[in-house]
C-alpha cells in the first residue's frame, strides 16, 4: 500500500484487542498524518512502558515499581486480599474505589479444557502471603463461570486450613437491571444469595 513499514505497522495494530484490519488501517493513517503530535509520543510511551513495567513480585499486578504502588501503600488494609483473575479485573475494582485492601492476580482460572492447572496460576505466592499470618480475609472475586467457580472452590479448600476467612463476591441483579431481562441463571443465583433486608 505505502511501503513495508506501513504494512508492518498496520499488521501489528491489527493484532491488538478490539482492532481488526480496517480499524488498524484507520489508526495507522491517523498516526502517520500527525507523526510529531501522535506517533512519536505514542512510540516513546510504548518503549518506556515496555522498559519499566513489570509484574509485582508480591501480587502479580503490573507496575513500574516492585512491590507495586498498591502493595507498597501503607494506608491499605494489609489484612485483606482480593483475588482476581487478571490485571483488568484489578483495574475495574480500583476504578470503583470499593476495595481498600491489597490484591492478588491469579493470571487465569483452572480450565480442564484449556489445560490450565494449578501450576499455571499464580497460586503459591498467594498461599505464602497468607501463611505469613498478616492476612485475615481473602475475597475471591473471580467470574461467575464454571471455570471461575471451580477455581474458587479449589482455592477455598487450600486457604481455609490456613485459618483465614474466605469470602466471595456476590452474584445477582446488576445496578439498573430489570428482572424481566435477566437470564435464568442470574435470577437463580440472585434468589439463592438473598439476604435479610
Amino acid at each position: 500500500m505505502g511501503g513495508p513499514e506501513i504494512d508492518r505497522l498496520i499488521g501489528l495494530l491489527a493484532r491488538l484487542p478490539g482492532f481488526g484490519p480496517r480499524s488498524a488501517r484507520r489508526a495507522a493513517l491517523r498516526l502517520l498524518q500527525q507523526p510529531e503530535t501522535r506517533m512519536l509520543p505514542l512510540a516513546n510511551a510504548l518503549a518506556e512502558a515496555a522498559r519499566a513495567v513489570r509484574p509485582c513480585a508480591a501480587c502479580g499486578n503490573l507496575d513500574s515499581q516492585d512491590p507495586c504502588t498498591i502493595c507498597a501503600d501503607p494506608h491499605r488494609d494489609h489484612g485483606l486480599i482480593c483475588v482476581v483473575e487478571g490485571v483488568g479485573d484489578l483495574w475495574a475494582l480500583e476504578r470503583a474505589h470499593v476495595h481498600r485492601g491489597r490484591y492478588h492476580v491469579l493470571g487465569g482460572t483452572l480450565s480442564a479444557l484449556a489445560g490450565t492447572g494449578p501450576d499455571d496460576l499464580n497460586v503459591e505466592p498467594l498461599l505464602a502471603r497468607v501463611r505469613e499470618g498478616e492476612v485475615a480475609e481473602v475475597i475471591l472475586a473471580l467470574g461467575a463461570t464454571v471455570e471461575g467457580a471451580t477455581t474458587m472452590h479449589w482455592l477455598t479448600e487450600r486457604l481455609k486450613p490456613l485459618g483465614v476467612v474466605v469470602s466471595r463476591v456476590s452474584q445477582g441483579v446488576p445496578m439498573g437491571g430489570a428482572l424481566d431481562v435477566l437470564d435464568d441463571g442470574t435470577l437463580a443465583a440472585a434468589l439463592r444469595s438473598r439476604r435479610p433486608f
Binding site: 463461570t145 464454571v146 479448600e157 435464568d184 441463571g185 443465583a189
Partner: peptide, 14 residues
Amino acid sequence: PAAALVLDDALALA
C-alpha cells in the same frame, strides 16, 4: 441453566 444452579456446590460442579 444447569451450570448456574451448581456453581456454589463444589461436588455438583465437579
